[in-house]
Amino acid sequence: MSNSGKYLKIFAFSYLVFLYAPSLLLPIFSFNKSQVIAFPLTGFSFQWFETLLYQDSLHQALKNSLIVAISSCILATILGTLASRATTRYDFKGKQVSLTFILAPLILPEIIVGVSLLIVLIQLGITLNVWSVILGHTLLLTPFSIIIMNSAFNNLDISLEEASMDLGENQFGTFYRVILPLVLPGIIASLLIGFTLSLDEFIIAFFLTGTDTTLPVYIWSQFRFPKKLPTTMALGTILLIVSLILLSLSEYFRRRTSRSNNSILEE
């Protein structure tokens, strides 16, 4: 047993190296002086980060991405919260089928979601802009929000709601004073994860973006120019750090929901 444990440990660490290898290149080469992405390294430099400051099309793409990410994470969290509350609190006909349907974008190939949305928008003669991307992203993010909100609502003991009603609060007061504060960490986690996913999403944005390029679509266009690689690496590094911060925050909030609600049951 201890022998197999040792082999497992060696495997686990090698696998971890494999998982980290690509992402570690990002910071390494974004601070590397040479324009060529290759070993050996040539020296430390901030120049690639500096060039980021002077690219107007990047700034425009960033602005579009922020608009898309903020709007779609708010919309998806509203939809996800409604769906999650309905399905965790009430039992009714058609619940499972419709929930599975709403969750489908989680597993459907993105290209099919993107192409079919594009077909409809073209048929309706709607001009592609940030709003078409926002709608597509909301569709994509809602399932994630549902999963996060489900764990928040499942941790919510129904007797807390009943206690509030029993102590004289109406439904609105109960929602505002008991339910909302207890699921708020879940809502924040859902917003942060949605924001991060939207900021990184490429396929839907690629199909629905029109002229309002988002950040990943901009990065995609930069891949064609080998000279711009280090700059793209620098951009990737910044995005990685931002994602890390946002997702650590969301993890913190997600854990807070389960902890504070669970403590009632722990004696």
């Binding site: 007797s159 029993d166 102590l167 504060p181 207890l182 609600n261 403590s263 009632i264 049951l265």
Partner: peptide
Amino acid sequence: PTNMVFQNYAIFPH
């Protein structure tokens, strides 16, 4: 005009 003491007490954790 009733109030209840719940089995798990239902103390608001927040």
